[in-house]
Amino acid sequence: MTYPDPASPPPFERGPRAAPSTVDRFFGGPPVWVVLRLLMLSLVVGVILSVIGLDPLNIIQSLGDFVRWVVKRFEDFFHLGFEAVERIIRYVLLGAAVVVPIWLLVRLFKVSER
């Protein structure tokens, strides 16, 4: 019987986890969890930017006008409590205007490194 050389690295063994897919590698993990993390980060950044009073290039103004248009169309159905939902949507959109482009740039640079 021959024994392996203790100085040599162990042979490659494929464990129960398969290699991540191209989509997982691009997103940096499972897409659902990445989207949920981006939504939460966008909400936090949106609240912070709103408190500071920043408005990146009036993109949010246009999105806010769209949200108001949708709210007016469904005002009868969602009158109670919908202002809170609209406010959360505004915060998410404000944060997403900053978070998503930065995340996309980081992901593109990481993919190009490989």
Results as ranks from 00 to 15, higher is better:
Gly64Trp: 03
Gly64Asn: 12
Gly64Ile: 02
Gly64Glu: 04
Gly64Gln: 08
Asp65His: 07
Asp65Thr: 03
Phe66Asp: 11
Phe66Val: 03
Phe66Ala: 13
Phe66Trp: 15
Phe66Cys: 00
Val67Gly: 06
Val67Ser: 12
Arg68Cys: 03
Arg68Ser: 10
Trp69Thr: 11
Trp69Phe: 13
Trp69Glu: 09
Trp69Cys: 01
Val71Asp: 14
Val71Tyr: 09
Val71Ile: 04
Lys72Ile: 01
Lys72Glu: 10
Lys72Tyr: 02
Arg73Gln: 13
Arg73Val: 02
Arg73Pro: 01
Phe74Ala: 15
Glu75Gly: 10
Glu75Trp: 05
Glu75Ile: 01
Glu75Cys: 02
Asp76His: 12
Phe77Cys: 00
Phe77Ser: 07
Phe78Ala: 10
Phe78Met: 07
Phe78Asp: 08
Phe78Asn: 06
His79Ser: 13
Leu80Thr: 01
Leu80Asp: 13
Gly81Arg: 00
Gly81Gln: 08
Gly81Tyr: 04
Phe82Val: 00
Phe82Tyr: 06
Phe82Lys: 03
Glu83Gln: 11
Glu83His: 10
Ala84Ile: 04
Ala84Pro: 01
Val85Ala: 15
Val85Met: 10
Val85Ile: 15
Val85Lys: 07
Glu86Gly: 14
Glu86His: 03
Arg87Trp: 09
Arg87Pro: 00
Arg87Ile: 00
Ile88Phe: 09
Ile88Pro: 05
Ile89Asn: 02
Ile89Gly: 01
Ile89Met: 08
Ile89Arg: 00
Arg90Phe: 12
Arg90Cys: 06
Tyr91Thr: 01
Tyr91Val: 00
Tyr91Asp: 12
Val92Thr: 04
Val92His: 02
Val92Ile: 05
Val92Asp: 08
Val92Asn: 08
Val92Arg: 01
Leu93His: 07
Leu94Tyr: 02
Leu94Pro: 02
Leu94Ala: 02
Leu94Lys: 05
Gly95Asp: 11
Ala96Asn: 08
Ala97Phe: 03
Ala97Glu: 03
Ala97His: 03
Ala97Val: 07
Ala97Pro: 02
Val98Asp: 06
Val98Ile: 14
Val98Ser: 07
Val99Ala: 14
Val99His: 13
Val100Lys: 10
Val100Ala: 09
Val100Gly: 02
Val100Cys: 06
Val100Thr: 14
Pro101Asp: 05
Pro101Ile: 01
Pro101Thr: 00
Pro101Lys: 03
Ile102Cys: 04
Ile102Thr: 10
Ile102Tyr: 11
Trp103Cys: 01
Trp103Asn: 09
Trp103Asp: 13
Trp103Arg: 07
Leu104Pro: 00
Leu104Met: 13
Leu104Ala: 15
Leu105Lys: 06
Leu105Phe: 11
Leu105Thr: 09
Leu105Ala: 15
Val106Thr: 06
Val106Asp: 14
Arg107Tyr: 05
Arg107Gln: 13
Arg107Cys: 06
Arg107Met: 08
Leu108Asp: 12
Leu108Phe: 12
Leu108Val: 09
Leu108Thr: 10
Phe109Trp: 04
Phe109Leu: 10
Lys110Ala: 11
Lys110Val: 00
Lys110Glu: 15
